[in-house]
């Protein structure tokens, strides 16, 4: 469960985030939708305590990233936009590295990696070096690496960037699995299809602030539109930077 109230963050004169508030409940998928540069990545970075907010409040399962950074990191699984795999390590070694940093024993890691390999379909490349992996394979390894310590809260930054249709399908199925298992999932995206297909709640972010927030039906109702796409355009004021 994530509660975010009135977040602000500036870099010099640039106001990246100014007044973002939302809630992400357990067993639900919350989508942060907005054009590129709207402040989604900065918001996520504040959630996983990489950046301190200038103002505002964050609570993840009651913990404050400013005070309990280490505790929060134990309960978070994060797939950042740049996947950041180590090319000279195998997929398994990439995952093990993060497992070890989470203090897992070898037995725990082996069991968990076997499970993730099966769920994500990584049997063919789990013991190959990640040099030359396709985008789809990279995302799978990055997800497995983020999930190795079985975190309750999962943050995904633009997870389907660069993926083909098959890889996108596999990814969506896995995200729905997480929801069924009761995880709290937050994903950021600039693709309308993605939120329409996955998200229980949608937070539309534009120019660093929340433009609208609710379920797909609520958003259509509020904007008086018959399709999600029209609703987005009306709520943001333009469709610049968004993909249907």
């Amino acid at each position: 469960m994530i509660v975010v109230k009135n977040l602000h963050k500036s870099f010099g004169d640039v106001k990246a985030v100014c007044g973002v508030s939302f809630e992400a409940r357990d067993g639900e998928i919350t989508g942060l939708l907005g054009p590129n540069g709207a402040g989604k990545t900065t918001t996520l970075r504040m959630l996983y305590s990489l950046l301190p907010p200038d103002e505002g409040e964050i609570r993840i399962d009651g913990l404050d990233p400013g005070k309990d950074a280490m505790e929060i990191k134990r309960t978070l699984g994060v797939v950042p936009d740049g996947r950041g795999l180590y090319n000279r390590l195998t997929a398994r070694e990439n995952i093990e590295y993060f497992g070890e940093l989470h203090g897992m024993t070898r037995a725990q890691m082996n069991e968990r990696i076997d499970h993730l390999t099966k769920t994500l379909g990584m049997e063919d490349f789990i013991d190959r070096r990640t040099e030359g992996f396709s985008q789809g394979q990279r995302v799978k390894v990055a997800i497995a690496r983020a999930m190795v310590h079985s975190p309750q809260t999962v943050l995904l930054d633009e997870p389907s960037n660069g993926l083909d249709v098959m890889a996108t399908r596999a990814l969506r199925n896995y995200i729905l699995c997480l929801k069924r298992d009761g995880h709290s999932v937050v994903l950021s995206t600039h693709i309308m299809q993605e939120v329409a297909a996955l998200c229980d709640r949608i937070v539309i972010i534009a120019k660093g602030a929340v433009a609208a927030d609710g379920t797909a039906e609520e958003l259509m109702e509020r904007s008086g539109s018959s399709s999600l796409e029209d609703a987005f355009v009306k709520l943001i004021g333009s469709d610049e930077g968004l993909l249907a």
Binding site: T75, E93, E100, H102, M104, H149, S150, G182
Partner: peptide
């Protein structure tokens, strides 16, 4: 479902072994 039971981590050794390898 909650996180696995975790030991106190010695990050130095883990990072050293991984970078060396």
């Amino acid at each position: 479902m909650s996180g696995v039971k975790q030991r106190q981590v010695n990050g130095i050794g883990t990072v050293f072994r991984k970078e060396t390898r």
